[in-house]
Structures are given as C-alpha cells and as structure tokens.
C-alpha cells in the first residue's frame, strides 16, 4: 500500500474522530486510459475538504458534491464517469477513459 493511501484512510478516521461527517470514494473499475487505477481513494469531509484522488482532477468536484449528499442520506452509490457516458454526467475525463467510483459514508 502506498504512503498516500495510508494518509487518506488515516485522515478519514481523524476527521470522524473530530466529529465531522466523512465519506470515502474508491475507484472500482476503469476502462481505457483512466488516470488513476482501481483501488485509488478519496476521503471527503462535510465541509468539502478532501485528500487523495480518483481521477487526477477531472471528476473530483462531482464526486465531492455527490459525497456530501451521501453523507446526509447514508445510501452508498456507484458513479460512472466517462466521455461516452454523456447523458448521465456533464463532467468527463479529458483523457478519454471511463471510471466507476463507489462512494460511501463512514458510519
């Protein structure tokens, strides 16, 4: 496991210990030239702070927005991003890849 992953999960734990709502996003599959491999993670706090990455910047904004909603609802969700998926998402991957991201609340 990389040092980066270490810091992401520890940040999630620390934020929650400090009384903040936290969500975790994980890349679960990729197609084509996706910028981050499956397993890459992003931890999001309720004020919008985040550490880690799921795409190298292309879709983090949309993932954070969705994560804030999931922090409230508690219902995990799988989000698909990609240039060929134009009806569902306006944000795409400039590189032409597709990724699927699982977002969950830290209970």
């Amino acid at each position: 496991m990389s040092t980066e992953t270490r810091d992401i999960l520890q940040s999630a734990a620390d934020w929650q210990a400090a009384g903040r709502k936290v969500a975790l996003a994980t890349v679960v599959s990729t197609w084509g030239s996706a910028p981050r491999p499956a397993g890459s993670q992003l931890a999001i706090a309720e004020n919008g702070d985040f550490v880690g990455s799921v795409s190298g910047g292309c879709v983090e904004g949309a993932v954070v927005a969705e994560a804030l909603e999931i922090m409230r609802s508690g219902t995990p969700k799988q989000l698909d991003f990609g240039v060929s998926n134009d009806e569902a998402w306006e944000v795409g991957l400039a590189c032409g890849g597709k990724i699927s991201v699982f977002v969950e609340r830290l209970e």
């Binding site: 496991m1 999960l9 520890q10 734990a13 830290l106 209970e107």
Partner: peptide, 14 residues
C-alpha cells in the same frame, strides 16, 4: 464503511 472496519483496517496496516 463502518468505523470498526476502518479501525481494524488501520490496525492491520500498522
């Protein structure tokens, strides 16, 4: 993810 699971994951990693 449940907090207990995250704590166990962090402990395994450590």
């Amino acid at each position: 993810m449940k907090r207990e699971l995250l704590d166990q994951l962090l402990a395994d990693r450590a």
